Simulated assay, not measured.
Amino acid sequence: MTETRLSVDIYSDIACPWCYIGKRRFEKAVSALPFGDKVDVKWHAFQLDPALPEHYEGSEIDYLVQAKGMPADQVAGMLEHVTTQAAAEGLDYDFDSLHVANSFTALRLLALAKERELGDQMKEALLSAHFEQGINTGSVEALQQIADTVGLDPAESAQVLAGDKYTDEVRADSVRARELGVTGVPFFVLENKYGISGAQPSEVFEQALGQVWQEIGGDSLQMLGTPSTDGETCGPEGCN
């Protein structure tokens, strides 16, 4: 008899502050469920700004003001709000030290880690490096160090970082996200049927996972193709 397991596909970017918060809230929900060890998570790439230079000369505030056209006071208020929400989940965001960088290479490295069954560990390491540790996640040298810490084969990760391997996989994730109607991240897909948009409270994740696990209550979940905007997300135009 095949063991029942619940699949969750999560679309996110390592440069998305709400994605790290959403990860923590989702993990809290899973840990509270009696079937939490039967929830299978798979990470998918959703790059928020493909046009961002490999290394951006400026701060996070500069980037959001100049690149996204957001007023400086709005940016400051948004970052303060995000930092407070992150702290409530045990995360120590440091936007003053953050290096703004194109995330594509990091997402390719994450694709390798997924193949080696180290996807969650790599996702955690990349998010922490970017938002908490002030590490330049656009730097090949920094990414190599992260890969070594996670446990990837140094030669294999170096080969990925030096070339363009997993480019197709990262782009395919973005295409699939658009097909699902994803416009902001994090976005959670349960059993390839139900979608949850944003860094929802843990209770929302817990309820949804429980409903899907029991195969009831589908009417109260969001069908794919009609993403909700109730939860906080980051999109190509910025974060809310």
Rank of each mutant, 00 (worst) to 15 (best):
V175F: 10
V175S: 09
R176S: 02
R176F: 02
A177C: 04
A177H: 01
R178E: 10
L180H: 15
L180Y: 14
V182W: 03
T183V: 15
G184S: 05
G184R: 10
G184C: 05
V185Y: 00
V185C: 00
P186I: 01
F187L: 04
V189Q: 04
V189E: 02
L190R: 08
L190Y: 09
L190M: 08
N192V: 08
K193R: 09
K193H: 08
Y194H: 15
G195D: 12
S197M: 13
G198I: 11
A199R: 03
Q200D: 10
P201K: 06
P201L: 07
P201W: 09
S202D: 01
S202T: 01
S202V: 03
F205R: 07
F205G: 01
E206C: 06
E206W: 04
Q207K: 15
Q207C: 12
Q207P: 12
A208R: 12
A208E: 07
G210H: 07
G210I: 09
V212R: 02
V212E: 04
V212S: 01
W213D: 00
Q214K: 05
Q214S: 01
Q214G: 04
E215H: 00
E215A: 00
E215F: 00
G217C: 06
G218R: 06
D219Y: 14
S220I: 13
L221P: 09
L221K: 04
Q222P: 10
M223I: 15
M223C: 14
L224E: 14
